[in-house]
Design a protein around this nucleic acid. Structure first.
Lengths: 135, 135
DNA sequence: CTTGACCTTGCCGTAAGGTTAAGCTTGAAA
DNA sequence: TTTCAAGCTTAACCTTACGGCAAGGTCAAG
């Protein structure tokens, strides 16, 4: 099958497939006489694997390591689990950060009348006026 | 003061200050005879405002709008509040996404022995084997 | 005189592609 | 047969928000 069909069946875009090939996640695709990339079922499995890993939020670098482990029949599952756990910790940190930002913003918006008057504790706080926020 | 001191006092980097000037968040800085940028206390207030807004996760585009509102003595606080609320919603969506990813990954890692054996439900799930996860 | 800190502009690189552009091939309709 | 659209190719530029580095100008101290 050509790249368009492979894209449709894997959930990736044509551009992403070429990008991943260039990035090194995929081997150089076979080419037909006309120069078109040509894919088989085994290639499709790899594409789908990448698609699912990306959906779970793994970076391309992490996907690359997952693929290496996938290719290695003898690898220990502990390695994969460790990679996943590391990723979970990163997600947790990011979530905590965003929650803190959200809490700060909510406190500020809570203090703001939000009417046609110009007084605005949000801008005051950004400007450095600590009296802007009254709990 | 020169750009280095302004950077130290505002919490931004020299590079960021030049970038923001170019981006349009700051007016063209005054220059000394030697061509160095020259800042005053009023400039510092603007730099600090930007710094705080960035810490709260606003994009440069949003910061630009906040600055415009800040500069406008007659603006209604409702506009600022709306901008903040929109940002809160974006944060909420991002947090929810990350939490779902985390939950999926936790379920997978929970099912994985994580020892020296090669069987690994995480890789199986990425490969598309739905039997990998047993709740 | 030299050294080192600070300043200038400007280009390259990042993640993860999206979006054209210019030019092939292929298949089907007119 | 011609022509049209769809699909393919590579290449290059756009995004965010800067960091890093190059090559060079400026300034104060030893």
């Amino acid at each position: 099958m050509n790249i368009g069909e492979a894209a449709a069946k894997s959930g990736l875009s044509r551009k992403m497939i070429r990008y991943y090939e260039n990035y090194g996640l995929l081997p150089q695709a076979q080419r037909s006489d006309n120069g078109y990339r040509h894919y088989q079922a085994s290639d499709l499995r790899r594409l789908r694997f990448i698609h699912r890993a990306r959906e779970l939020g793994f970076s391309l670098d992490e996907v690359s390591r997952l693929l290496a482990l996938w290719d290695d029949q003898a690898r220990a599952s502990a390695e994969v689990k460790q990679l996943a756990k590391t990723h979970i910790v990163e997600l947790e940190q990011r979530i905590t950060e965003l929650q803190q930002l959200k809490a700060s913003l909510e406190q500020l918006t809570h203090c703001c009348h939000g009417d046609e008057r110009p007084e605005c504790p949000i801008l005051d706080a950004l400007a450095g006026n600590d009296n802007a926020v009254q709990p």
